[in-house]
Amino acid sequence: MSELTGKSRLRRTMMFLSAQRPGLVKDAYVYKPDSVMFDLEDAVAENQKDAARFSLYHTLKTVDYGNVERIVRINGLDTPHWQEDIRVCVAGGADGIRIAKCESAQDVKDVAAAVSKAEAEFGSKEGSTLLMAALESPKGILNAYEICMASERLFGVAISGGDFRKSMQTRYYAHGIEMQAARGQMLLAARAAGVQCFDTIFQNLDDIEGFRKETQLIKEMGFDGKSLISPKQIAIVHEIFSPTEKEIIEAEKIVRTVRENSAKGIGVFVVDGKMIDIAFLPGAERTLAIAKAAGLMK
């Protein structure tokens, strides 16, 4: 059974935190999201970008986040901030960088080149800093596949609903119709390229039922996880994105039976009344890998 590590590690939850606010970043690991997203972009005022970088650097260097992945959202490539953002990310040892407002493969390549330069400058292992791209515009969505294929460093793409809805001249609707085409297109591109795919934040923190419905929708679509803005959203996503006990038992049975029957030269057989063949093996193995990564089994 393959393990979910590096680019393919478990990323059900990515919790946004302003890098500028020590009260938020000093102990966010206690909520146990799969990843934290230190924000240097929208959550930081224009005249505090430098302060946020100093805060981020010492947080990365000092606070032990354990198994929680540390990603940093840098400022857009149309700002004067992004190159120094990349230097501080690499110097501090961030696990990954989220490219804001990504619209083309060239955007990813530009960031990857700057990251390579920073890794050389600070003595980090070449390729150790991963990338993800946030698609926030129709152009970004239409270029999703080339973005997904633009760099070996890229582990995934995320849709940013706020900016995307604005650029589409619509707003949030509970049924999600305004995001349907973009979510679908981004997901197709990500799966075709073999990278992960993440959904946008849910803004209304008091609408727990709406949040649960949206999370269930993106799980059923095939997303890997969701961006979050509050610790109270974590448990719901982990619950929906983790296999149930029944699914784990079924997956174990499929893996065992496929292997036993393959050894006997049998290609198609029945498990608990369902026709099973070798095509079911990757899905069952993935269920077990997720369960293992989520700490549901050893």
Partner: peptide, 11 residues
């Protein structure tokens, strides 16, 4: 925390 004192002083 100490890391915040450092960060703010440097900035």
């Amino acid at each position: 925390l100490d890391c915040t004192i450092k960060a703010r002083t440097e900035c």
